[in-house]
């Protein structure tokens, strides 16, 4: 009996946190990535984030690729995909929808880090990246 209550209580908690999952903020995501990396939030670096954004890497077809390549040199501006479709700005100052959905953020980090760096980004790199974008005005 008690076990049943505990179980349904846990199930309800699960539902609540799954719903809450959609409502992150750049700050709450920074805190999560810092925790995952095992460092305090204050150890995240906007400078390293900017370097990650700008550094060019050799791409598969010999052309240099970078995050800035699609998201443009200035992240408060709209970018373009390879096919020419508009990408809304990455900086939350210009686009409040950014970094508010943990699943979406993880999906694009996974894809875009693989494409640009040929590997996944670390939790620390993700935290740095959001730290820098949060300051971009």
């Amino acid at each position: 009996m008690i076990k049943r209550f505990v179980c349904s209580g846990l199930a309800m908690l699960g539902t609540v946190s799954a719903l809450a999952g959609a409502a992150e903020t750049p700050a709450s995501l920074m805190a999560q990535y810092a925790k995952q990396a095992g460092v305090p939030v204050s150890a995240l670096s906007a400078e390293r984030g900017a370097a990650l954004y700008r550094t060019e890497h050799p791409g598969r077809n010999g052309q240099a690729v970078s995050c800035a390549g699609c998201h443009t040199a200035n992240p408060t501006q709209a970018g373009r995909t390879r096919i020419g479709k508009r990408i809304e700005p990455l900086a939350p100052a210009a686009n409040p929808q950014r970094f508010t959905d943990a699943a979406k953020v993880e999906k694009w980090f996974r894809r875009n880090c693989q494409d640009v760096l040929q590997r996944e980004c670390s939790a620390q790199e993700k935290g740095d990246f959001i730290t820098w974008l949060s300051q971009a005005k």
Binding site: R60, N61, R110, R111, N112, Q114, D115
Partner: peptide, 11 residues
């Protein structure tokens, strides 16, 4: 989808 025309579009 992980190698979608040279881009990672995995789901």
């Amino acid at each position: 989808l992980d190698q979608h025309f040279g881009e990672n579009a995995s789901l």
